[in-house]
Design a protein around this nucleic acid. Structure first.
Lengths: 189, 189
DNA sequence: ATTGACAGTGAACAGATGTTCACTGTATAT
DNA sequence: ATATACAGTGAACATCTGTTCACTGTCAAT
């Protein structure tokens, strides 16, 4: 059993079960008839830095889901040299480093197009954060939701769209901030 | 112990340990001195659909990380009515439904700005997918990396930038497709 | 041919884990 | 006051789990 194959099988298992298999389950997964074979295989994965043992000796997926980050790619003219500096990004940690309760919204419309937020994009909103000038916020103005840049000048809040075809909103009646946009996620099909 | 507090504590534990705690660990986590108190609490979370028991009776985080999806927000004029249809999106499944090996790239430059991909954005590349017309690809042209729209007309490949200030690339010497962009992730700080 | 490293087998065992049962205190409603 | 539901305690136990040990076969190097 090659390490690469083992890694893929562990990933698949984890994706479905959201946990690592026990050594007995690994034996089934890897096609061993002895738990010990799995035990030895895992020892190698630990040595390779893919897995690790936590506080209480429990197996943890240290780098099992770290997607290789191959570097920076220039989206202008082709990049002179593509240095493959191998960071690894753990998507889970990358996006989930928020303490409080966050939520998703799906964007429709084009008023934030100049901020590179378009139709169908999912935005993650952190309702616990207080908006600073220039933050993008989900706001409830006069009982209606909208996504805009947030600016506070002389005590008055302006909600500025990232599209010249739309007007700046100066909330009159009520303004409630749904939260600050902390992330944008787009998925192509 | 309120269910909401328990959920938050479980999330925190899972974020660090990448697994659910045992009943004994839960007792410590929740401040119980009896495992059974945790057992009963978890039973409620299972009934509430937050957790579930898998094939072999193991505890799984069914919806523990499902971020509430509050609906569609119009980024044009404020939305007339904001129907709170409570989908839940599991970020992990949402972004990780790829079998093969994927990798990240960080974008620099503005040649894909009209495709809403800008400086600093992370793009996820699937090297196993064959590009179709209109897909955004990471390509290696004459030994240099670039991100462009992919088009094949009359057997000739065109790499089209999403920015009028840049020229269309007609690969002469070599063209290698690094992969198809399947996702864009932006994070604000 | 001999050696050694390596991949896997099979059995054994201490300790951890999920689950059940009977019990206690405490708040709330009747 | 009385009953009732509920949150938590404490102990018990069968089973599962990680780990160790001794062993077998196989391949490559000497």
């Amino acid at each position: 059993m090659k390490l690469d194959d083992a890694i893929k099988k562990l990933r698949r298992f984890y994706r479905f079960e959201k946990r690592l298999p026990t050594y007995e389950e690994m034996s089934e997964l890897f096609g061993f008839s002895s738990k010990n074979a799995s035990f030895k295989l895992i020892a190698k994965l630990i040595e390779a830095g893919i897995l690790e043992k936590g506080d209480k000796g429990k197996l943890l997926p240290k780098n099992l889901f770290a997607i290789p980050h191959l570097g920076t790619i220039k989206a202008g003219y082709p990049m002179p040299a593509f240095e493959a500096h191998h960071d690894n990004i753990d998507l889970f940690r990358y996006l989930y480093d928020v303490q409080g309760d966050i939520y998703f919204l799906t964007v429709s419309g084009d008023s934030m197009i100049d901020a590179l937020i378009g139709e169908g994009d999912k935005i993650i909103v952190d309702p616990s954060r207080t908006p600073k000038n220039g933050d993008i916020v989900a706001a409830i103005v006069d009982n209606e939701w909208t996504v805009k840049y947030y600016y506070k000048r002389n005590g008055a809040v302006e909600l500025v769209p990232a599209n010249k075809n739309y007007p700046v909103i100066y909330p009159r009646e009520s303004l409630e901030i749904g939260g600050v946009i902390i992330s944008v996620i787009r998925k192509y099909h």
